[in-house]
């Protein structure tokens, strides 16, 4: 059963019949975490790097920003029995339009924010598909932990 993770949204699950799916990953980042021992997984789709841009919005919807969304994703999985050391972490998205000046690179900023948070918290990325000028759909199977991507103009691949 596909469970859709919307834009600025997060879902976690321990139901093996569930596949978490998020569409429209342009400059946004899709982050999946999965503990293969207890088969618990989660997916976050955040739009922007830092909550200081609008702290009110961040309170109402912490999944809009990397710095408020990522900690909640991990904690929500811990509540279902996942353990940090066993988590498999995969990242997709962060694309941008063609722009040599770099002003339009929200995607790059989104990815940089994630790296900063992971570096501070000793989290390693197991696989990623980042950047370029493509649009991505990301899927996480709770039964197997497999993450698949549909990439615009390129087709499907396993991450």
């Amino acid at each position: 059963m596909d469970v859709i993770v919307g834009v600025a949204d997060m879902k976690v699950s321990d139901d093996p019949s569930v596949t978490l799916v998020t569409h429209s990953l342009g400059s946004c980042i899709g982050l999946t975490v999965y503990d293969p021992v207890v088969k618990v997984g989660g997916m976050l789709h955040y739009m922007l790097p830092e909550s200081q841009l609008d702290s009110n919005k961040a309170r109402n919807n912490p999944w809009m920003f990397a710095d408020t969304g990522i900690p909640i994703l991990f904690k929500s999985c811990y509540k279902l029995g996942a353990v940090k050391g066993r988590m498999i972490v995969k990242v997709a998205g962060g694309s941008q339009v063609m722009d040599s000046s770099g002003v339009f690179n929200i995607g790059k900023r989104n990815y940089a924010a994630l790296r900063k948070i992971f570096w501070r918290n000793n989290v390693l990325i197991d696989a990623e598909d980042i950047g370029g000028s493509v649009n991505r759909t990301m899927r996480l199977s709770i039964a197997t932990g497999e993450v698949t991507l549909k990439i615009s103009g390129q087709g499907n691949k396993i991450l």
């Binding site: 339009v97 722009d99 339009f104 615009s152 103009g153």
Partner: peptide
């Protein structure tokens, strides 16, 4: 350009359009 960046209604042409500073 912002709508494309957010991936809303984006097809297989992706985000392959020019951002003009």
């Amino acid at each position: 350009i912002i709508t494309l960046s957010m991936g809303i209604g984006v097809g297989r042409d992706g985000l392959s359009y020019r951002g003009k500073q």
